[in-house]
Write a protein that binds this DNA or RNA. Sequence first.
DNA 1: TGTTTTCATGAAATCGATTTCAGGGCAAGG
DNA 2: CCTTGCCCTGAAATCGATTTCATGAAAACA
Lengths: 339, 339
Amino acid sequence: MVTIYDVAKRAGVSPATVSRVFSGHANVAQARADAVHEAARELDFVPNRNARRLRTNSSEIIAMMVPDIENPFFTLMTRAVEDVAREAGFSVMLCNTNEDPVREHEYMRVAVSEPVAGVILVPSPGTNLDLALERSVPVVCADRHALGYEVDTVVADNKDSSASATRLLYDAGYERIACVTGPDGVETADMRMAGWALAVQEHTGAPPDPCLGIRAAYTVEDGERAVRLLMDLPQPPDAIFAANNRLGAAALRVLNERGLLPPTVGVVSFGGLPLILLAPLGVLITHLPARELGHQAARMLLERINGLAAPARSVTLPVVVGGEGSGIDMIYKAQGSAE
Amino acid sequence: MVTIYDVAKRAGVSPATVSRVFSGHANVAQARADAVHEAARELDFVPNRNARRLRTNSSEIIAMMVPDIENPFFTLMTRAVEDVAREAGFSVMLCNTNEDPVREHEYMRVAVSEPVAGVILVPSPGTNLDLALERSVPVVCADRHALGYEVDTVVADNKDSSASATRLLYDAGYERIACVTGPDGVETADMRMAGWALAVQEHTGAPPDPCLGIRAAYTVEDGERAVRLLMDLPQPPDAIFAANNRLGAAALRVLNERGLLPPTVGVVSFGGLPLILLAPLGVLITHLPARELGHQAARMLLERINGLAAPARSVTLPVVVGGEGSGIDMIYKAQGSAE
DNA sequence: TGTTTTCATGAAATCGATTTCAGGGCAAGG
DNA sequence: CCTTGCCCTGAAATCGATTTCATGAAAACA
């Protein structure tokens, strides 16, 4: 392995000087600096980061903890984080938590002992950040808040935009609107359902019929089960508000099975459907700011890594509630940002 | 920071013994080991991985370099790698190369200087592995070979299955089959086009009409441009073999624009279309073994990390060329594996 | 019982870069 | 011409765990 000692010998300087040239923390005479660079190039020198990190007790790795990288929403968020991180000289360590607090905690141990420079976390219900905070590893939450902790957080404006989307269904003439949302305790699921309930209350003057608000895991399979349940009700809904992209896909699939595609039954998919080719007319797709969530979270984390000591900040990003356009129009939008 | 010296002092042993207890490489008397564990617990000791790595010159990080994590094919591959890696106690560092050899090389520098335990690489054309091989960082290529290097490689059976898929179009009665493939020099693009050409030659007894074989970047936008070109030919094709999922989506979108959806014009999408909801009848989707590619690559890499010194191995995984079923059938297949 | 082997252990060297400290060279000021 | 001070520079200490080496004790063998 080529070390700074080899470079130093070749360049005729001391190892300390080589280090100074590469870390740039002190002044080195131009002639020597050139000699060092030349020697480094000739020897194809790559500094050993472990040695550097041991000494400086720092690292250039950000842990990105998401429930499931296969969900295009999180894929896009991760991609955005990686872009910002790379720009700033950081690498991204990918951690799938599977929405499982135990797994999340295991990863947190790894992150702390690594130690990583910081963590961007989509918290699972029951998340525990004690370890990271004790060890003062900065944490930024994205998409959801971490219950019981005061850390920087970036979320989408779930409740208001869910209400808006639901109102659009009423505007389109639907009257009995159901909601399929995610698990109890998952913030996005709860907020979106709350938004739906708010719009229903506004429109009907009464809280929604409890059997129209139903929960499922954020998967296509479980979503289908839930939508079937809804459509099998004695008084089935004439429109469905689906609280994420998986559930939106599930709704469309069940409705397709039964020949009830929009506009027969109205559908809102909260979150884009990537690569969707031929969306039926009358599907309303809202555009979650996945990329912006990632960018913003990464930027805030970098600020913390650079020593920012302000109290915890909370940012809420707007959700674009797309107009109820033609299938093709919406396809293009969904495609463009590939949410 | 709590170090092994603190633990040693408290447990009344030497730092060497503490190290032995934690790394488990040598025997320590039970009584002392207990004392060490107890002291470690009391002090809440977490070993510093940087120090360990510096000494052992190893790490528990695998670099995963893919062209674009947003392509569901690579997302799934990455997920599979992460699953295997986690099982074995490794973490995954995510690197988007953007199909750009310069960016790939930058990441390779990071990986080498990290240094990571190994690299799983989807090579860009013009990839350069010298750095990694010099530094004896194990590399496994996935999805494509690295031109000019002898390293472990896992690929899909692109040529044969492209030929099979093309034959299915002939069987369905299409006669003038075009091919939209990826950039020149990208192995998957070349092999898939070769498979298409082979089937055309077999069927017509002559090499394919050159203007029917067209190249595009592996993006929806550029794919649309290419497909438009094809459909604007004086003698347009009556079927399209699209060499990856993005190009498949592009083909369907252009055909939809023009009212020529299958079965009017036949389509093969080589690679699944995730979350596709309402595939038109007559779209043939082949299922790339993304998950298996990832699993296999990760397993082979772990073997190398553990010191395996055999000559480079090459594994080819089969591609399932789905039957031309009803839209819904295919939807379920595409969904299930979310390629 | 005497000899050899095995085993657990601590002291100290080691990994490779960073950083402190002290000294030498040089310019400015008296 | 002699200080004072600044800037570069190299020697050596340092980060925290691992590992080699030497040692002494215990176990195995004859």
